[in-house]
Design a protein around this nucleic acid. Structure first.
Lengths: 243, 243
DNA sequence: GAATTGTAGATTGTTGACAATTTAGGAGTA
DNA sequence: TACTCCTAAATTGTCAACAATCTACAATTC
């Protein structure tokens, strides 16, 4: 028998994870400073690994690194939401198409996606953040089917972004849509397995649009109409520019 | 009057630049090891900044970082070319569309693009690598007009990728196409300024396709036909799947 | 002889000390 | 008061030494 290689994370990665979670959970707020010595003391490590962790978070865009002045937690706005989802829509289309056209030697990966979907199914009624996180996991696994490393990587990245948006722009997961969400995901996976790329893309785009709409819910009628004036909304909602 | 803040690069960034150039220029080959101590000795610095530089290059994908085993220069293949250009095509479409729809308060940025174009014009007959690099500069500046930070950032990133491809997959810049290239760029910029998004996209996509074709030139007829079998080629050449 | 185990050398990971830079606030000046 | 200049504290940047880990190869076993 053969075991899967276990790869222990480096201290820096571990630290980055902890700090990232602290931001996503709201223990750290936009504008808060990350002071190397403070962190190294509370994590009981030296400043070296902390530095690396901060650099990791900086490339993720979670913190902003100013030369000689340290890092601060970054603050997102709605333009960021639109950009991130525009990226996810079109990159996702590529990945999903590619996955559809690949002869699924990716058997193992398909298993992973199914598993994520299962996790979502059993998690009905859980709290909103948990559901959102599971949904993002599913999407990441799905996109990974495309076997395009850079695009997959970019998805991981934008998933972190979305975590920040959820935290700082506020969003409530709508439980009533849960069933619909899962059935959409099922259809999407099915389309990919059957090699029906165009259908897969259609479902994918629909999902992205639904996600963006979630972010618009906290806004008023008037504000939403204003949002639809923004250029990027074209990319996301193409023809049907009216709700 | 007000001056633009001059921001001196950190040692690590400087080092990363040096090493990156060494890779792009071919002084370092895929598989070569980057040994921290060696580098720190030849750069006359300590290992700290070297470490950071290597981490930077690792996130750029130029080197591969193996835990406890150091970093090696990464090796690209044609799949990478296809993925990178697929990303540039669709991300570029978003940026170009967005730029077209923006009321050009981006006056300053437009100036920058024009300048890059001018640089290309005056550089006729220069060596191939120089032309390619100028072309990439132009494209980056153009995409920056979209004012979408993540997409702009991604373009910088994939430009580095392309540098690696050019170096290690070989490509010869075709001087005879030079005029056509520049006139295409002019039309593209003009379309954006006039807010003609659909035309801009069309030109953009054409340019991407032309770039990919450049990378296919070293291949034989038979090999090229094989390339067109690859799923990703659909995204790049859509309908016209025959040369 | 092939496979396994042990070991020395090379290399990365971590640490605490010191240097350089930035920031904030007070003293001095008009 | 408003402004500039200066200084001290806070903080990041750099360094060299030490610890942990990996690689290659020799020694050992079957």
């Amino acid at each position: 028998m053969t075991f899967q290689a276990i790869e222990s994370q480096s201290t820096a990665e571990l630290l980055a994870e902890q700090i990232r979670d602290a931001i996503l959970v709201g223990k750290l707020h936009p504008g808060d400073r990350l002071i190397e010595q403070e962190l190294s003391e509370s994590f009981k490590t030296s400043r070296g690994p902390i530095r690396e962790a901060i650099r990791i978070l900086a490339t993720e865009g979670l913190v902003e690194h100013r030369k000689n002045r340290g890092a601060i937690v970054a603050a997102p706005n709605f333009d960021d939401v639109l950009e991130v989802y525009a990226m996810r829509m079109s990159m996702g289309s590529i990945a999903v198409t590619h996955a559809s056209q690949l002869s699924l030697e990716t058997e193992l990966d398909v298993r992973k996606v199914t598993k994520k979907l299962e996790a979502m199914r059993t998690a009905v009624g859980g709290n909103a953040n948990r559901m959102i996180s599971l949904d993002l996991d599913f999407q990441s696994a799905l996109i990974a089917l495309g076997a395009l490393p850079r695009i997959t990587e970019m998805f991981e990245q934008t998933a972190v972004d979305i975590g920040v948006f959820v935290r700082f722009l506020g969003i409530k997961y709508d439980d009533s849509d849960h069933k619909e969400l899962i059935s959409r995901h099922e259809k999407l996976l099915k389309a990919i397995k059957e090699g029906n790329a165009s259908q897969a893309i259609e479902i994918w785009n629909g999902h992205i649009q639904a996600s963006v709409r979630e972010f618009m819910k906290p806004f008023s009628e008037v504000e939403i109409n204003e949002l639809f004036e923004r250029p990027l909304m074209n990319n996301l909602f193409e023809m049907e520019m009216k709700r």
